[in-house]
Nucleic acid binder design. Structure first.
Lengths: 130, 130
DNA sequence: GTTGACTCTTACATTGATGTCAGGGTTTAT
DNA sequence: ATAAACCCTGACATCAATGTAAGAGTCAAC
């Protein structure tokens, strides 16, 4: 099949499929006219790439084990587990950082609201005294 | 003071201070020789910029309220609270997304470990039968 | 044989704060 | 007066996947 059809079948843009090729993730043969020709298996390949990209892995990381996981179960690809571990550590670091920022934001918001309340209380008191 | 001194006092690189200026966050006067001249108050300005950057706000957003918060308490700067709210929403979206990815990763890791365990159990059984 | 729908390659844009470098002026201390 | 240390502007690089567009070739249908 041609690249446009592969794009439709997978929901991935033509641009992205060509990019995956430039990163060594997929290698279509070329027809006499220069068009890329994909086997039906390419659909699974692209779906697999999508899956790993959605897990936050980079194309470079995916390139390291894609061949293996297309032929075997993940459990038999030794490269996968260490990547998952380090990705998980990344994510946990990001979660810590985001939660820290979140707490800081919430504290600042709370203190703004408190100051505003105090101001309106003052105002009310003044009004009451008048 | 000159830019190098301001950089040392604040721990912010000269490059970044110039960048803040290009974004309209700080406006030193120029000496006859073209050098930037900062008042002592610039230290507080840069520290304040740092604080908001660390909260994840962009220089563009900071530009919208920096003048106000340098003169008043945050609670009196109407622009601040809406920004905090939308930033908090951003962060909560990111937390949801990261947690989703984390769960997916952990599931995949668990199933890999399980398959590997099953494999080694099989192996052991075979050995025992020999 | 012409038009429309594909395809090709190449290349720039996106995002945003920061690093770094080049080429050139200024100041300060020796 | 010279060297070291500073300052200036301008510009490119970073990260990474994707969008977009130009200019050109191919193919199918009418």
């Amino acid at each position: 099949m041609k690249i446009g059809e592969l794009a439709k079948l997978t929901g991935v843009s033509v641009r992205s499929i060509r990019y995956y090729e430039s990163q060594g993730l997929i290698s279509p043969i070329r027809q006499a006219n220069g068009y890329r020709e994909y086997s039906p298996l390419a659909v699974e390949t692209v779906e697999t790439i999508k899956l790993y990209l959605n897990l936050g892995l980079s194309t470079e990381q995916i390139a390291g084990f894609l061949h293996c996981v297309l032929k075997n179960k993940e459990a038999f690809c030794a490269e996968v587990m260490p990547l998952y571990r380090s990705k998980l550590e990344d994510i946990e670091r990001q979660l810590v950082e985001l939660n820290q920022i979140k707490r800081n934001l919430e504290e600042r918001m709370a203190s703004i609201l408190q100051e505003q309340n105090e101001s309106s209380l003052e105002a009310c008191t003044l009004e009451n005294l008048e």
